[in-house]
Nucleic acid binder design. Sequence first.
DNA 1: GGTTTAGGTGAAATCGTTTTCATTGCGGTT
DNA 2: AACCGCAATGAAAACGATTTCACCTAAACC
Lengths: 330, 330
Amino acid sequence: MTIKDVARIAGVSQSAVSRFLNGGSLSQEKRERIQETIDKTGYKPTVAARMMRTGRQHQIGVLIPRVYSDSVAQIVTGINEYIQDYGYGMVIGETRYEEERELEYLALMEESGAAGIVVMGTELSTRRLAAYRGIRVPLVVTGQNITGIPCVFHNDFCALEELTGRVLKKWHSRFAYIGVDDRDPQTGTARREGMLSACRRAGYKKEDILIEYSDFTAMGGYNAIQRILKTTKDIEGVVCATDTIAFGAMRALYEAGRVPGSKVGIAGVGGSQMAAYSLVPLTTAHYYFKKCGMEAAEILIKTIEAKMVGELLPAKQVCLDYKIVERASI
Amino acid sequence: MTIKDVARIAGVSQSAVSRFLNGGSLSQEKRERIQETIDKTGYKPTVAARMMRTGRQHQIGVLIPRVYSDSVAQIVTGINEYIQDYGYGMVIGETRYEEERELEYLALMEESGAAGIVVMGTELSTRRLAAYRGIRVPLVVTGQNITGIPCVFHNDFCALEELTGRVLKKWHSRFAYIGVDDRDPQTGTARREGMLSACRRAGYKKEDILIEYSDFTAMGGYNAIQRILKTTKDIEGVVCATDTIAFGAMRALYEAGRVPGSKVGIAGVGGSQMAAYSLVPLTTAHYYFKKCGMEAAEILIKTIEAKMVGELLPAKQVCLDYKIVERASI
DNA sequence: GGTTTAGGTGAAATCGTTTTCATTGCGGTT
DNA sequence: AACCGCAATGAAAACGATTTCACCTAAACC
């Protein structure tokens, strides 16, 4: 069933059918006849042929650091849900945090005709930034705040400020923070600075705050606590840059006899599913990752559609709110 | 840069270049000249045009029940890793356990020219089976054992038999199992039967075994334990059909003062990342989900390539092994 | 009444490949 | 010498849509 067949059956020309599909001037009468035959035959335009002519496909690329992650899964769900309604598909690339792989994927997706790209921002190296800026298809970044590029991210500074405040209210001394590398500006820098701001406000001196660093794994959090316990056995309050890190930290504390919620207060960030169901439910700054994905998809699709008619949209920046969820861990 | 340009520069015909790319008889001399110009110009065939002509694209569809899941994420990672090397991409569809949505996606992927499809099996309804059998593109199912259809799954029966045996060795009485619906033959029936076999072997009478049912969430496990505790406060051994269910169950037990590992033994299935890092590390039957994804991808791609040359491969069934990981929870 | 103007129309060109088809030349067999 | 088979070859058709082009008609304007 091709456009030709539809045209023949409806008794009009190919062009008429094409115009019907893509919007062009057409008499009401033919409109109805075409609509009718399309309904009857169940005709659907072939993606490949359309794409070959127009050069772009109805598909957006999604670049993620790893699929095996709570937040990533939620963001992807959000993107997927949104684009479905617009008839778009999704191709996923896993960068494993490797710059080289990310740049490769970016190039591949661009040249293979993706209509747009969502990349979940991690490290913001110079090369990556250049790639984001230089790419010729619409691109939206999530999780990072980059001026001049459309992006969707959470209010990390305020989240950590408020979260840390809550922890300090109950656990007054011997405070530690387990963060991540500054190469990730939001998760690294913004979250740490938010935490520091709360500490200052609570009268802490900077040198009294223990800061340890970890990667994005539970094991990283586990090891960080081990290091902390070596010097400070009686640690009282711990804030972690992510829930996953917090799980590892909790486990290390529990093993050392410092039961979270009764001997020590601990909190994470993200609001993962497991946070509510760990033995000691984890206090966390709940992030709206799914919404984040949907917002990113919305911006992307709007940009794509605008680009089709030749407009240029200003780079929209969306800062999402968060919600502190207090549970038994503090 | 099109095939035409390459032909012109190399001083050969279009057909020659096409034959060079797709394999056809061609003199050594032209081969070299073409290779040279391709290297020089960096020419890459346009996906859309190729696909339009052949009707199939270098892309495989992946149908998952939800992206927000440990095992799913790992399987997808495995698929992705394998197909990358063959130049294939991946489009993901989320069925949310809804039959209607699954059938829609199946049809959509088939008609939009996916080269093959991997579906992660859940319920095996009649309509789904008919769809799997009737589809005209290669299809591989993971997580379910369906005769006549290529599939990759774990040895659920033996896994549960061995796992339950381990639990019963330490916790001798008042045993409970939290399973899932029989509409999912592997996760529902096979796992329960494996568990029952171990119980029989240990001399349990069927009526002494408490069986509760749950969905695939932690909350489901939590609620199941609540129901169990109403009649049997002193429950001693619990086996759950998945790790996620086990997390919810652990939490409910912990809240009721029955600390896992010291007052009650509990185990799950899957080997999720969190199992090692929950406060009380969870004993589990570790499943090789990533390998499962890779195996599925391998079978699929082999089938696709075989189909191109007109062969028909027998439906390969792969039964993966598991590994019992004993941790503090029992 | 004559001249624009604008919308409606279908034939044909176009996109970048793969595939078919007819032709060539060459080595080997009668 | 005549014939067959086969690898090599390039011109041209095909794939299914969109887009251009030229033409037609009817309404609107002076």
